[in-house]
Simulated scan of single mutants.
Amino acid sequence: MTDDDAPELPRGIALAWGVAADPQRGPKREMSVERIVDAAVELADADGIGAVSMAAVASALGFTSMSLYRYVSAKDDLLLLMQEQATGVPPESVRLLDGWRAKLLALYVEQVLLYQRHPWMLSLPITGSPITPNSSAWLDAGLAALDGTPLTSEERVAVALAATGAARWCGIVQAGYTEQSRGSGLSPDQVAIREAELYDRVISAEEFPALRRAIDDGVFTSPADPFRFAIERVLDGVSAYIDGLERGAPHEQNDDWIALDPAELAGDRRVKDAQKAVREAEKALRDARKAERQAVRDASERLSRSRR
């Protein structure tokens, strides 16, 4: 592919890489893409992504909305640049650690902290691979951590994505607890206790036996970090796989992507109606089994009373 055949960079990505043309005319020289993004990130950090609009950012800078559009032509571009700035680059200290596992775990921890500092980032949709500089730097760091291992390029990407995904999931849950704390005035520990109490009221051993046992074991008020446990076990699996490769085991490959049937993607009405019917039937079955369990309990109580 020649340069002429290559797709043109969208303006937001071009701005992130610093290759977009500056506006020919504009307001005072104090205005710049960097200042616009700084102001937008400050708004999002303080009040969430819902507080960010071109008008709000312009007001914070003392300019008009139209002035901003000379520098950032669309709100989607602004959101991308905000994410890019908040993401930053991985700490250099990660590269100085010994071993692929220590490096990947450190990247995981740093990404969780990143989401705690900027929880609004979790509200932004994932629209594809990280094409911006800082986002690319994180993926590069994950791949670099696996240099020297017998993993293939595809396997290294898979492992790096597993660590990134685990960090994002942890960030989503922790951000949710933080938001509850902010809205209720309760501490995160108090939120967890309240959550456990709510579960205790509605989860029965008859209907949800495994979840009931977990509640009784105090999982919702435990100080243990389930996300750290999970990422450690993922890395255990990667370590075992690498050990196998070093002993001569073959590489494994799975091409079975999870995907919707084309008929579902096309929005076929008959498919939607059939799926709705299945959901309703499954709900009816759960309700019937619940009624059955209640009937058995009632019958057992009557039998017990009659024998007294």
Rank of each mutant, 00 (worst) to 15 (best):
K276M: 10
R286H: 07
D236P: 04
D236I: 07
H251G: 08
I258M: 14
N254D: 14
Y241W: 03
A284M: 06
P262Q: 08
R279E: 11
T221A: 10
V234A: 13
L245C: 08
E264Y: 00
V234H: 11
F220Y: 12
A240F: 13
K283M: 07
L285K: 02
G248H: 04
W257D: 08
S222F: 09
S239C: 03
A240S: 14
A288L: 01
F227T: 06
K272C: 02
E282G: 00
E246M: 12
A224V: 13
A259P: 00
V271G: 02
A259H: 07
A230N: 15
G267E: 02
R286S: 04
I258H: 13
R228F: 09
E232N: 11
V238M: 06
I231T: 14
L235K: 03
E252T: 14
I242L: 07
R233C: 09
R247P: 00
A288W: 00
G218E: 11
W257F: 14
W257P: 01
F227S: 09
P226N: 10
G248Y: 02
W257H: 10
N254P: 05
E264T: 01
A249L: 09
E252L: 12
G267D: 03
L265F: 03
E264A: 01
G218V: 09
L265I: 14
R270F: 07
S222A: 12
A240V: 08
F220W: 13
I258P: 05
W257T: 10
A277M: 13
R247G: 02
A224P: 03
A277K: 13
I258G: 10
R286V: 05
G218R: 12
K272F: 09
A284R: 14
E264K: 00
D236S: 06
A284S: 13
K290Q: 02
K283I: 02
G237D: 06
D261E: 10
L235Y: 04
D256T: 11
G237P: 02
A277C: 08
G267V: 01
A266N: 03
E232Q: 14
E280F: 08
K272E: 13
D225Q: 11
H251D: 07
F227L: 07
R279Y: 07
H251V: 09
E232F: 12
G237S: 05
